[in-house]
Amino acid sequence: MKETGDRRQGTVLCLLFVYHKKYSFKETENRPLSPHLILKSMSLIKTDKVSYEYIRRDKDGAVEGINKAVDEIDLSVEKGDFIAILGANGSGKSTLAKHFNALLYPVGGTVFVGGMDTRDEEHLWDIRQTTGMVFQNPDNQIIGTVVEEDVAFGPENMGVKSRDIWERVIRSLKSVDMFEYRKHSPSRLSGGQKQRVAIAGVLAMQPECIVLDEPTAMLDPMGRKEVIASIRELNKTFGITIILITHYMEEAVHADKVYIMDKGRIVMQGTPKQIFTNVEELRGVGLSVPKVTELAFELRRRGVDLPEGILTETELANELCRTLSEAKHRKF
């Protein structure tokens, strides 16, 4: 089946082979590592001119061209932040995300996680423990056949003692509100529930930061709400740093800071309010704003006195009531 091409893949049998290949880090180029940043900066994650390229090959394996998926990106994430990275399909946001826990290594520039250079083989497991990752497809990241066993997978790999694993599993499941499902088989859960189990699985590793790579793309609205609620809860109550990759603007509304990516570059950054004011520019990079924001934008354009960057229905309704009563007063 030659269609399967040269993507990194394997049957379940080939999984093993894939591992062995990935473990030999010699394959990646030997640029000198950067000195640890612990003293220089307190940022949890810091990228310095990070670039990543895919090599495109034709059928015979000859190099056809080079795609720059991530292009000299600088960003820093502080402890406790809720960051959203938005972008259309193919904007490079997922590629960037995979750099945050050393699943990919930059071709140019450096990524620091907790002050450690991600290319530093010695700290690989520390880095992956610091930033956990949740992926898009709920079915393709569940390893256990019982919920509690899946959640335990991370701590088991880390060599945590059995008794402590239990404690972690229970605590993690409770914090995403999935404790009562601990004995269930994941295959019988809804998409939203599966994603919450995946989040619990990462939580059990007690990371400082969780990177979520389009965690809601394959969910229905109900599941999407559940997952977003869980994420916000983790950030607010437990102070866990969140990096949410998505193309749903509604989900970025609650972030502290939003980055917009296009063609591998960050083209806009700021608070949700600042970003969502630029309705036209966002459309230009293949994104759209929530309908409420669009309505507010159109009303403003037609001279209705509204503040910029309205993000929620309640906000718009309240502001409209205010302007309406002011307009009435003026009339009299």
């Binding site: 929530p290 309908k291 409420v292 309505l295 229905e313 309640t314 718009l316 309704a317 409209l320 009531c321």
Partner: peptide
């Protein structure tokens, strides 16, 4: 729809 919700709140 989001718009309906705004109308409802109004």
């Amino acid at each position: 729809p989001q718009v309906s919700r705004v109308m409802y709140l109004l």
